[in-house]
Nucleic acid binder design. Structure first.
Length: 444
RNA sequence: UCGAAGAUAGCUCAAUGGUGGAGCAUUCGGCUGUUAACCGAAGGGUUGGGGGUUCGAGUCCCCCUCUUCGAGCCA
C-alpha cells in the first residue's frame, strides 16, 4: 500500500510502499541506511545484506542522491530515538538514477543556490518555507471569505500608472501603445468595493525598482482588501483582526515547520490584537527622543546629519527605532500628506496629514502593510491628480467612482513575501517565493 | 543608483611575490546501527576577463564583468 511519509506512524509493523527520492545514503559494510523523501517528510531505511536479494543489494549500491525510487518495506520504531520511524526495506524499484547532484548536504553560497533554485526547493528548509507560505495564503483566503469579502481579481496589464511610471515594467500592446504590468490592484479594487461592499485582490504585482536589498523583489504577491463605508479606524481594526488570525493560525497548523526553521514562536504568539497605534507625529517624537537623526547625502557627496524633521519618510534605522519598544506589529498612521499617494484622504482635523497607515512588523522586518482611507471627494481628487501631474484621461473611469454614489472607503495592501519572511524569520526575501525575481536575476 | 567586501576544483574555503591545497561531492576498496557516518585510494584547475609591473603574479597596479552585504525607494 502506497503511503506518504508524514502518515507513516499509522503503519507500524505494516508493509508499505513509498514513492520518492533518495535524500542521502550511509553504508556500514553489510548494512545500508538510505534516507528517502517523498515531499511530505524524510524516513531512514534499513537495508541488511542478508535480508534482501543480491540484486536489490547491488541496486542500492548504484543509487545516487536524488535518484527516484519506489521502495517496499515494513515500518518500525527507531531502536534509539523516540517518535522516529524507520523502514525495514524488502524491495526496491529504481525509477531513475540521478546524475551527480549539485546540492550536497553540505553548505553552499547564496548565488549558487539561486542558480539551482529549481533543485534548491527540494531541501528541507525550502520545503518548510513553502508549506508555511501555503498556510499563510490559505488562511488569508479563509479569513476574507469568512468575513464576507469577495475575491475580486484585478488586471495585470494596465494602461495607467497608479503612482507614476518610473517604476513600471512596460510592454507593447497591439495597436493601443504601451501596457504596463500592474504595481497595485487598488484602483480596480475600489470599483469592486463600490459594487460588492467588501472585496480583495490577491495576485502578482510588479515594480521596476532597482532595489537590491533583502526586502525587495521585482515581482511580488499582494493582497489588497477594499471596503466601502470603512474609515481609517475601521481599516486599522481590520488589519489587527486579520494579522492576528493569520499569524495564530500558522503557528497552530505549521508549528513543526516553524520550529524547523528555528523560529522563536514565543514572539509570534504575542501577535494578537490590539496592536499599538502610533501617529506619525508621535513616531517623530520617538526618533527625536532616541536621537535617531536623518542622514542625507548632499549633491557634493557630503553627509548631512540633522534631527529628524517633520515631513520626511522613515528609513530602515527609523523604522527599527520605532518598533523596538513593542513586541507586536506597530501601526503608524496619519502621515504627512505631501509624501503620500494622490488617492489618500486628508485628515479633516488636520489637512497637513493624510489618513494613511503603515504596519511595521516587529523584530526589524519593516513595512508589511500600507493602507489608507481613500479620498472620496471628486474635487479634492481632481486637485491631487493635477498636483501629482498624472494624466487625467487615464483616471476618468476612477473619477466616475466619485461621481456615481461616492462613499467613504478604505483598504490596504499586504506584501505576501514580506509576511512570509517575517513569520519564517528569513534573512532574505528570495526564500519567501518559489522563484524570486530580482533586478539581477530572472533565471531559473 | 551610491558605498563596502569579494570572485581559486562540481560545492565551501586555504595558499609571505617563489612547485596552487583541504573537506564535501564523484569513482574504486573496507566496515552489521549509521545520523552532514567513518577509514583508505584515485580522478578533477586557462586561479572571472583583458592589460601592466617583475627574473617570477592566485597574490601588486589599472580597466571591465559578475556576485554578496549595506543605503535610498517601497509592499
Amino acid at each position: 500500500m502506497w503511503v506518504y511519509i508524514d502518515k507513516i506512524a499509522d503503519f507500524v509493523d505494516k508493509e508499505v510502499i513509498i514513492k520518492g527520492w533518495l535524500y542521502n545514503i550511509r553504508s556500514s559494510g553489510k548494512l545500508m541506511f538510505p534516507e528517502f523523501r517523498d515531499g511530505t517528510g524524510v524516513i531512514q531505511g534499513v537495508v541488511a545484506k542478508n535480508g534482501v536479494s543480491e540484486k536489490i543489494w547491488e541496486d542500492f549500491g548504484k543509487l545516487t542522491q536524488e535518484s527516484s525510487l519506489i521502495v517496499k518495506g515494513t515500518v518500525s520504531k527507531h531502536p534509539k530515538k523516540e517518535g522516529v520511524y524507520e523502514l525495514q526495506v524488502s524491495d526496491l524499484e529504481i525509477v531513475a538514477i540521478a546524475e551527480p547532484y549539485p546540492i550536497t548536504p553540505k553548505e553552499h553560497g547564496v548565488d549558487f543556490l539561486a542558480d539551482k533554485r529549481h533543485l534548491w526547493l527540494r531541501s528541507p528548509r525550502q520545503m518548510a518555507i513553502m508549506r508555511v507560505r501555503n498556510e499563510i495564503l490559505q488562511s488569508i483566503r479563509d479569513f476574507m471569505y469568512e468575513n464576507g469579502f469577495t475575491l475580486f481579481d484585478a488586471p495585470i496589464f494596465t494602461p495607467n500608472a497608479c503612482e507614476g511610471t518610473s517604476t513600471l515594467f512596460s510592454t507593447d500592446y497591439f495597436d493601443l501603445g504601451k501596457a504596463y504590468l500592474s504595481q497595485s490592484g487598488q484602483l480596480y479594487a475600489e470599483s469592486g468595493a463600490m459594487a460588492l461592499g467588501k472585496v480583495y485582490t490577491l495576485g502578482p504585482t510588479f515594480r521596476a525598482e532597482n532595489s537590491m536589498t533583502r526586502r525587495h523583489i521585482t515581482e511580488f504577491w499582494m493582497m489588497e482588501p477594499e471596503m466601502a463605508y470603512f474609515d481609517i479606524d475601521d481599516d486599522m481594526n481590520l488589519i489587527e483582526d486579520f494579522l492576528s488570525y493569520v499569524v495564530q493560525r500558522v503557528i497552530k497548523n505549521k508549528r513543526q515547520e516553524l520550529e524547523f526553521l528555528g523560529r522563536d514562536l514565543t514572539k509570534l504568539e504575542k501577535v494578537v490584537k490590539p496592536f499599538p497605534r502610533v501617529t506619525y507625529d508621535e513616531a517623530v517624537e520617538i526618533l527625536r527622543k532616541k536621537d535617531i537623526p536623518l542622514i542625507r547625502k548632499t549633491a557634493n557627496g557630503e553627509e548631512q546629519i540633522r534631527p529628524f524633521p517633520w515631513g520626511e519618510d522613515f528609513g530602515a534605522p527609523h523604522e527599527e527605532a520605532i518598533v523596538e519598544d513593542f513586541d507586536k506589529p506597530v501601526m503608524v498612521h496619519r502621515w504627512p500628506s505631501e509624501a503620500k499617494a494622490f488617492y489618500m484622504k486628508r485628515d479633516p482635523d488636520n489637512p497637513k496629514v493624510a489618513l494613511g497607515v503603515d504596519v511595521l512588523a516587529p523584530e526589524g522586518f519593516g513595512e508589511i502593510i500600507g493602507g489608507s482611507q481613500r479620498e472620496d471627494n471628486l474635487d479634492f481628487l481632481l486637485e491631487r491628480i493635477k498636483e501629482h501631474n498624472l494624466p487625467m484621461e487615464e483616471f476618468e473611469w476612477y473619477l466616475d467612482l466619485r461621481r456615481y454614489g461616492s462613499v467613504p472607503h478604505s483598504g490596504f495592501g499586504l506584501g505576501i513575501e514580506r509576511l512570509v519572511s517575517w513569520i519564517c524569520n528569513l534573512e532574505h526575501i528570495r526564500e519567501a517565493i518559489p522563484f524570486a525575481r530580482r533586478p539581477n536575476r530572472i533565471r531559473p
